[in-house]
Design a protein around this nucleic acid. Structure first.
Lengths: 202, 202
DNA sequence: GTCTATAAGTAGATAGAC
DNA sequence: GTCTATCTACTTATAGAC
């Protein structure tokens, strides 16, 4: 994906290292954690497999970094979109914005983000542990969005706020499983998701 | 899961064969397709790995059967729930029922169903091909539910019906990733999902 | 029907040349 | 920095005893 061709979070940027990370993100987002082979990553990055070990100490290190980049990029993109709103934007409009930004990253901007949502549940415990605090921040962002809407009286009181939040995030996170640009525009999905969430909550 | 202890779709029931299928469903639902090892299945079924080959010709055959059973069980459970409704039940109440039945199978009744939703996207093409027609039937069931609600004027016309259907199913299918019985009751999740879907659509 | 022993293939990782 | 060659471990699958 286009936006992934830029920075990858390393302090010492290297074109080869970035190619490897991009390739790993792509393979992970398509095949999943266990089926991701170093040989496939290497081929896509146009190097031989042992070259990966010059940049990463192990398969697990490489994958962990892809996941960390994906998680951070997802959160930052959504945060930026929210920060760009005029002060005093209504809570439901802020939720709309978060829905749109999440889907854009997930479906259009970043294989890294897709790699995270499709594989987080199947990672070994030690990798998942390293992603926990960053992940909690993103969940916290959504929790605050819903709490602010609730405080403004915009959310039906019969809803369990945690369940509602996870159901909404699930609807968004599941989109890579079925959406593809050839059958329906991204705009349609985003608009339908906004409408579904807005009316579903309030 | 309790309900999985019964029939598994074979014409010649065998206690060992069923134990193997149950074990495979459990491992698949937890670890995912590629990380599922025959040795782990065998251990859980309390046999040695080569015993699996008495009942299944290959790893892929075994996994394909787990998926087929899971898909059929999910559809049949939701169909039964709908069939049990009084004739003339309102379209939105039918959708409520489908949401409830889907979540019950997914979270409470069947590792087979969870194995399907968590792994369908990562199966090799030939296995997925074998599951296609059964899968289309279940998607068709949901499409008809939404079309009937729309025909009755109960669904907002701004919604793309396919996108709405997949977003709703995504919210349901994602639940195994975050729900567990220790943090919140199943009833809360089901009630929140019903409310979210009902108001989200109409 | 289920086992032990083992063959055949594949994947991650390392050694050492260039 | 990146390669070729190779080691070791693991996984599916088969052979053949019981």
């Amino acid at each position: 994906m286009a936006a992934d061709r830029r920075r990858n979070g390393s302090d010492t940027p290297s074109a080869t290292r970035d190619r490897i990370l991009d390739a790993a993100a792509r393979i992970l987002s398509e095949k999943g954690y266990s089926a991701t082979r170093l040989a496939d990553i290497a081929q896509l990055a146009e190097v031989r497999a042992p070259a990966l070990y010059y940049y990463f100490s192990s398969r697990e290190e490489l994958i962990a970094e892809v996941m960390a980049v994906g998680q951070r990029r997802l959160r930052e993109h959504v945060e930026s979109a929210l920060a760009a709103l005029p002060p005093g934007t209504a809570p439901m409009d802020r939720i709309d914005t978060a829905v749109q930004a999440h889907l854009q990253v997930e479906l259009q901007l970043s294989d890294f983000a897709t790699a995270v949502t499709r594989n987080l549940g199947q990672l070994p415990d030690d990798v998942r542990e390293r992603l926990r605090s960053e992940g909690s921040e993103y969940i916290g962002l959504w929790r605050r969005l819903l709490e602010q809407a609730r405080a403004a009286g915009l959310i039906r009181p019969d809803l369990d706020l945690r369940a509602a939040r996870m159901l909404v995030m699930g609807a968004l996170n599941w989109t890579p499983e079925w959406w593809n640009p050839r059958q329906g525009s991204l705009t349609d999905v985003i608009d339908t998701a906004k409408s579904l969430v807005r009316h579903g909550l309030g």
